[in-house]
Amino acid sequence: MLHLYAIVEPGTQCAGLGPDGEELVAIDCSGIVAVASEHARPLGSVPTEEALWEHERVLEALLEAGPVLPVRFGVHFADREALRAELQPRVPELARVLTEVRDRVEVSVRLLARDDAPEPADEVDAVGGPGARYLLERLGTRREAERKLDAVRTRLAPLAVAERSRLLPRPGTPATAAFLVERHLLDRFRREACELERELNDVALICTGPWPPYNFVDEPIGATA
């Protein structure tokens, strides 16, 4: 049984990177390499916090060795033949994406509403009944979230190769964005995020990273840059 971690380029060093000293196996798939751990029987794959961090730690260690396409947690194959059969038709696509993420990492920016932010102007009190007021409030919240997300994208997207963002249906965490950033621009990206947060007095920005490029591996990067 193979527990799959990532797709990497041939020659990527993965010795000693397994969890708890477990050896990783590099499975050649004619142009790309699948990194997995091998087990005599199926793993439980219960996504405990520790198990998820173990998976992530392997990916981050691989990320230091070269470009990585992270595989989501919990993907298993019965044997190498089954894995190769799945990956073989996708080798050209995955090899191309590996090239696109080389020397680039993902940075997350999550917007959090500040509890001490000023209340938005109440412009809907005089409009219609409770249902109309509720819907107008929802609309106002969404527009405000769009405005904040636009500010983040306008400021930070120029420092990134690609960007994925989405509004969240929660007033407390109105939006999140992921940016694919050249490694050498990471410090500059952080400084811009700090500066932007100071300018946006009603929202906190929590940046995390560098992450493996989870959000940028299944679509052509050039199409959204």
Partner: peptide, 26 residues
């Protein structure tokens, strides 16, 4: 805490989509 949320958001939902056997007990 946000980092943990970001990890969950990525590791369970993003990354290369491969049709292997997924045995998450969630």
């Amino acid at each position: 805490q946000v980092t943990l949320v970001e990890l969950l958001d990525r590791i369970l939902d993003k990354g290369v989509v491969i049709s292997g056997e997924i045995t998450l007990a969630v």
